[in-house]
Amino acid sequence: MGDEKVYILLTDTGTIFTRMIKFYTKKPYNHASISFDSKLDEVYSFGRKNVNNPFIGGFVIENIKESIFKEATCAVFCCPITGLQKRKMGQFIQKIKQNEHLYHYNFLGLFAVILNKQLRRENAFFCSQFVASVLKESDTINFSKPLSLITPHDLQESPGFQLVYKGKLRNYLSESDQETCGIHTSKEAISM
């Protein structure tokens, strides 16, 4: 498809808030982020702005080396994309970053997902809705259901994405010198 790549990081941090989400979804991962490099040096999402307060949220550039992620379990997926798709993704993310004060975390949207009801809110995303929006805006994936109902599990089922790693995030970060999809260096790495 292309010589560029996009990465989706799905995590379970084990916080009270994420345990509540996991109780409902019954899925292993409850948070989604997106990155353009295999080392996950810069990871974008919608989540908590303050590690100690899950109710203050919005657009975040996540520091996945922070304590909240240290013991997280994760799955990293990779998809080849074109240069044009990467530029569109970058422009979409940059627009939100430049106007982040206008964007909010979509708490109401989480309840809508539970009820399986589409809820459109301007300038509000939850994590997987944001990642799905980035992918859709760049014409990388056209989802079969509304973006406001996309869950982290839906993202991992997206066509074109290949599992690169599954296990403890700290192990991935300590061994993340792989540069392409499908190169596994960890004992915990899973191949498809």
Rank of each mutant, 00 (worst) to 15 (best):
L163P: 00
E71Q: 15
K49R: 15
L102Y: 03
A32M: 05
K26Y: 05
L108E: 15
N30W: 04
G109H: 07
G57Y: 10
Y103T: 08
N106A: 06
G167S: 11
L102R: 11
Q178A: 05
Q85T: 12
Q129P: 00
I81L: 12
E4W: 08
K145M: 05
Y29K: 08
D154I: 03
G90D: 10
I21C: 07
T25A: 03
H101M: 07
L40Y: 02
S174H: 00
I96T: 03
A112I: 07
K5N: 14
L10Q: 05
R19E: 09
F23V: 09
K117H: 10
Q156T: 03
R121H: 10
Q91V: 12
T11N: 12
T151P: 01
I150P: 04
N53H: 05
L135N: 11
N50M: 14
K22I: 09
K5I: 13
S158V: 05
I81H: 09
G167Y: 09
K168G: 00
T140C: 15
T18F: 02
E42W: 05
S186V: 10
D139M: 11
G14W: 02
K97M: 15
F69T: 12
M20H: 03
F125M: 12
A72S: 14
Y172H: 06
G109Y: 04
S174V: 00
N50I: 15
I64T: 08
H104L: 02
G167I: 06
E157P: 00
F17D: 07
Q118K: 14
K97Q: 15
E4P: 02
H101I: 13
I68T: 11
G47I: 08
G109P: 07
N142H: 13
D37G: 10
I68C: 05
L40W: 00
Q91D: 15
A32F: 08
L135W: 07
I150Y: 10
N99G: 00
M1N: 14
I34P: 02
R48S: 13
F17K: 04
L84F: 15
K88R: 15
L119E: 03
T180I: 13
F77H: 07
T25F: 01
T82G: 09
A75T: 04
G47Q: 03
I21K: 04
K70N: 13
Q162L: 07
Y24C: 11
V113L: 15
I61D: 02
N53P: 11
K27E: 09
E188L: 02
A132H: 13
H184P: 03
I34R: 08
V51D: 14
S158L: 04
E137F: 07
F126I: 05
N142A: 11
T11L: 07
G167F: 04
L169P: 01
E179K: 14
Y103H: 09
N99T: 11
K88P: 12
F143D: 09
I114A: 05
G182C: 06
K166P: 02
L155E: 02
H184V: 07
